[in-house]
Design a protein around this nucleic acid. Sequence first.
RNA 1: GGCCCCUUCAUCUAGCGGUUAGGAUUCAUGGUUUUCAUCCAUGCCACAGGAGUUCGAGUCUCCUAGGGGUCACCA
Length: 414
Amino acid sequence: MLRFALSPTGDMTIDDLRIAIVNFIVAQKRGEPFLVRMDDTDKVRNIEGKDTEFMQILEKFSLTHDQVYHQSEHQSIHQTLALRLLEEQKAFVCTCTNTDSSTCSGTCAQMTEDAYSRLKAEGTPFVVRLKAPKETICFNDIIFGEYNAIPEETGEPVILGSDATPTALFASACDDMLSNISTVIRHAWHIGNTPKEIHIKTALGYTGNTDYAHLPNIENAPSLKQLFKEGYIPDAIINYLLLLSNPKSEQTFFTLPEAIAWFDLAQVPKTPAVFEMETLRKLNREHLLKMDDRQLSMLFGFADAAIGKLAKVYLEEEKASTVSELEAAIRPFFSPKSFDGEMGEKMSILKNIIWEAPMLDSYETFEAYLVKESGLSGDALALPLRKLLTNSTEGPALDTLYPHIKSYLLEVIS
RNA sequence: GGCCCCUUCAUCUAGCGGUUAGGAUUCAUGGUUUUCAUCCAUGCCACAGGAGUUCGAGUCUCCUAGGGGUCACCA
């Protein structure tokens, strides 16, 4: 089983999303189930509603899961496991107040039963620490390669906090064990936790094998909210994040299902990826171009294939790459025009001519008709006409726009 | 401080012992296009520094400098 674990203590980041996608894709590749886990052990920092927000985002990206749970549901199991380690003398009670040390700074490990009972009676706060391993812990990270941690590095990790709740590290190790996670794929900054987790699982008698793949961070990444607001679509974002993860792939433009065939976890670079908006823009444009015309128009408030085709003219000519840019280009077609100034006079003339004109099928006949009726030609005609039709002084050639707006002509010019 | 990762044109990068060190963006020049833009051609520009291994080092080893990450009762 693969898992995507995230704490509901803040917004989902681009890094988080990439990790979710990679977990999903590896699960699909291997035909293993995909678990979504809310690591909500920190009651203070948890933010109400973040968990449902995460699920909505995953749904938006079509990352379907087979199982989902909150880590807090397992709290009593984790506590039981911690107590078992205590009984087996693999863990010990520690009263050191020194919180910035990964080891007990005193001799708590030698505490006697009597001393322990007295502690409890007096209500002195204490934590439970796992004893340090005796040997160096080694594992082979799929991305970073061999990693060795001497016993001092692993230390004596706290497994139960002073409020008797399992620590995030311990809870995570326990749940990975209980869910029998085959490969842990997560942020690179967890790599130093890995020896501690291996140590915990070993102490609990876990014999299953767990592979690890730590993904480097993505530098310079914008927030997901910003990307959504600017009109980047999920297909393009997935495409880009997978491209950053497998930069040597032969394809650069693809969908998630296509990528499942060739994606290779071992090919993820260990150097941090740099987020480049330009590349995403290009992919976004391509994905928008591939969409169904009518669906495309629905992204910015229309429901008509002709408007979708109109949008594609802007996309093809690279006048727009995002949904919000399309909206900014096409909405004004239908908003009231200004007829002020010299340009406005010509626009009024053209407007009246078009109002009376018959339905003209091609731009050539339309333009010829306007030339004949208005006496205008060249730029004197093209510019006011462009302004009248598109409410802008620039854009794709009018003859490419005309076929898609001719059925809206009267609406557009009014 | 310990441990891990990184350093190639202005920018993002390819490269995994022998290359004229490749591409993309930017920039410059010329051309196409009666809007803006596009597009085409050409040009400019790089291996952090130092030792070593080798017939041969951007590539392997070590040192120096600089950047990032991590060492919690946070994930």
